Simulated scan of single mutants.
Amino acid sequence: MSDLRIIERDRRDTLGEGPLWVASEDALYWVDILDRRVNRLSLADDAVTSVVMPELIGWVIERADRPGFIAGLASGFAELTLDPFQIRKIVTPEPLSPKVRMNDAKADRAGRIFAGTMCYEGAEPIGSLYRLDSDLSIAPVDQGYRIANGPAISDDGRTIYHTDSAEGLVYRMVLHSDGSLGAREVFLRFPDEWGSPDGMTMDAEGGLWIAHWGGSRVTRFLADGSIDRAIHVPALQVTSCTFAGPNLDRMFITSAADGLDGEHDGALFEVDPGVRGLPTLKFGG
């Protein structure tokens, strides 16, 4: 593995999250939830740009047949284009109280989005996991989360991993062809010294990479839950990771500076993970 690289830019993310590789643009997108930004890194020249949003934003997911993204705003799902800048609200999950916001999401092979919500303070188990179908209809598929985080979906599309960061638990569920989920089972339980499980991604060999909030690393877990390798980064609050580049052999890692003043807290990092990732899946609507 090569040395870790810190992406040079003029700011740090208060709460960097949701890295997304967009192959057609040779670019990485990610959000700063608390600073209400969508960031973009051009892999061709390392240029970083940023667009300020009107409210908190948890993630963006590329659309398969239309320009722009589906975005997870604090208030719900929305259509988003950045050039020209346009937002159109789609649907607000119910019940989405003032205590709850959208947090993290992924698309699956069928073009659906699975998106979690969380209690703003992470104190109450009032978050849920929702499914947005390509016809823009929405359905709740799991409930009872304090901080719903990091969906990751297996290459065959039959298994979904989902996290409650506040509880330190990573769940594994069967993903049925109709988009419903099987019974929730505990895949991993993070001990306190690991920090909390945050954003996740899967590689082409079936490894599950999990970011450690409060643990300064991302770890690759095998199907049996054993640790294969860990990559340490000089930031305490590591939030998510994804594969990027034409060969999907570059890993980018997001972090958060919220409440911290370390030199690299909130930076965007790049590492050579030693394995390739899976192609970015897009929303079908």
Rank of each mutant, 00 (worst) to 15 (best):
G179P: 09
L80T: 09
A23R: 12
P191C: 00
A244N: 08
L34A: 10
D35I: 12
K106L: 03
R11F: 15
P84M: 06
F77Y: 13
R229W: 01
V141H: 07
G207N: 02
A211P: 12
E193Q: 04
E55K: 07
S24N: 11
R109K: 14
D203P: 11
G225L: 08
V48D: 07
G68I: 06
D135N: 10
E121R: 15
G215N: 04
R229L: 03
G225T: 08
F85V: 05
A139G: 00
Y145D: 02
R88H: 14
F269R: 10
E193R: 04
E205P: 06
A148K: 00
S50H: 09
F221S: 05
L222T: 08
G284R: 00
H176W: 06
G284H: 01
R5E: 14
D104I: 13
F114S: 10
P54F: 04
A204K: 13
A148V: 01
K99V: 06
W194R: 08
I87P: 10
V60F: 08
R109L: 15
Y120T: 12
V275C: 07
Y171W: 08
I231M: 03
I227D: 00
S240T: 10
T254P: 10
F187N: 03
A244Y: 11
P197T: 03
G215T: 08
M173G: 13
V218E: 03
R66E: 14
D135T: 02
A267M: 12
D272I: 06
S165M: 02
M53H: 14
T92K: 13
I33F: 08
I138Y: 04
A110F: 11
R229G: 00
D249R: 05
W209F: 01
G16W: 05
M53Y: 09
F114W: 12
G225S: 06
A23K: 12
L41Q: 12
R40S: 05
G245M: 04
Y161T: 09
D142Q: 00
P234R: 12
E205L: 10
I61K: 03
K282F: 02
Q86W: 05
E121L: 13
D108F: 12
D104R: 11
S216Q: 11
E121W: 12
R276G: 11
V218K: 04
D265Y: 13
L181V: 13
M1I: 00
W194A: 02
R276C: 11
V100D: 07
L15D: 06
I7H: 03
H264Y: 15
A123Y: 08
F114E: 13
Q237E: 15
I6M: 07
G16F: 02
A244C: 07
D272Y: 05
S226R: 13
D265V: 15
D10M: 02
L181R: 12
L20V: 05
A152M: 06
R12D: 09
A267Y: 13
G225Y: 12
D258V: 12
G76Y: 04
